[in-house]
């Protein structure tokens, strides 16, 4: 979703106007209410600066990123591998469906609570929940990517006895990558949200825990600071990881 925001800047001036509108609306809200309820943009940026100089930001960011990336990697790996099987064999897809649907239908907070009983509070629980919830997203998208390969193309490949290596590289892989990129884009953003939620409920450190403490200590400007930082983080990940990757793949597909 954010990818399209960054990519689709047809007129930079309107984009900047959009940001200014948000800032102005935010400032207006802050004026109209108490600083305990809405922190002003000024105090929010002040909090970011404060957390940056005290080292609180970097410390928690690194812990959370480590958990997020580990969970994301595990979830993407298992989801994609299962998705390839599901995409190639309809029977396997039908067999995986109930499990995938069950995970998607369950409110994620329930997994956090269960994982806390299993693994206790800390990194294992957070990584487990992140991987578990990323997995179905990757499964569905990569399976669909393979399933959406043109059946005429598959028949042609068979008729002309195209070598396996070419078949995989030129037919299956592009199909898989198409679905993979869609799933991966979704997973990057949601894995960060999941990681922080899992930390909020059951970790002694990381951004989620910092948010828990800021909430308990009525540090509204810090809460706003973290929210803003997370938006920027997702945009940054999109800009420096996802978009170049997608450009690389689309060039290679042609």
């Amino acid at each position: 979703m954010t990818a399209s925001i960054i990519q689709g800047i047809s007129d930079r001036r309107y984009y900047i106007l959009g940001i200014m509108l948000i800032l102005a609306g935010w400032q207006a809200l802050a004026w109209a209410s108490h600083p305990l309820i809405v922190a002003s943009p000024g105090s929010t940026f002040g909090s970011i600066f404060e957390m940056l100089t005290s080292g609180e930001l970097t410390k928690n960011l690194l812990i959370t990123l480590q958990r997020q990336l580990t969970g994301l990697a595990l979830g993407v790996l298992t989801g994609t591998v299962l998705g390839i099987f599901g995409g190639l064999r309809k029977s396997l897809d039908s067999m995986f469906q109930p499990g995938i649907n069950a995970i998607l239908a369950t409110p994620s907070v329930i997994f956090v609570v269960i994982a806390m009983v299993w693994f206790g509070q800390g990194s294992t629980q957070v990584i487990f929940v992140t991987a578990l919830l990323v997995m179905p997203i990757m499964y569905l998208n990569s399976a669909k990517g393979i399933q959406s390969i043109d059946s005429n193309l598959l028949q042609m490949v068979q008729v002309y006895r195209v070598p396996n290596r070419i078949k995989v590289l030129k037919v299956y892989l592009p199909g898989l990558l198409y679905g993979f990129m869609a799933g991966f884009s979704l997973s990057v953003a949601s894995s960060l949200r999941i990681t922080i939620m899992a930390e909020l409920l059951g970790a002694q450190n990381g951004i989620g825990n910092a948010i828990f403490i800021a909430r308990g200590y009525l540090e509204t400007s810090k809460l706003f600071a973290w929210a803003l930082l997370l938006v920027l983080m997702v945009m940054l990940i999109e800009a420096i990881v996802f978009n170049p990757l997608q450009r690389f793949i689309s060039r290679w597909q042609e």
């Binding site: 106007l17 509108l21 609306g25 207006a28 809200l29 004026w31 109209a32 209410s33």
Partner: peptide
């Protein structure tokens, strides 16, 4: 384009003031 921005900003200022005043 310029005029649009000006109009938008003016509308925004009015909104801000209205909200601020009602708070007072």
């Amino acid at each position: 384009m310029r005029r649009e921005i000006k109009q938008l900003l003016a509308a925004l200022m009015i909104m801000v003031m209205a909200v601020g005043l009602s708070g007072c």
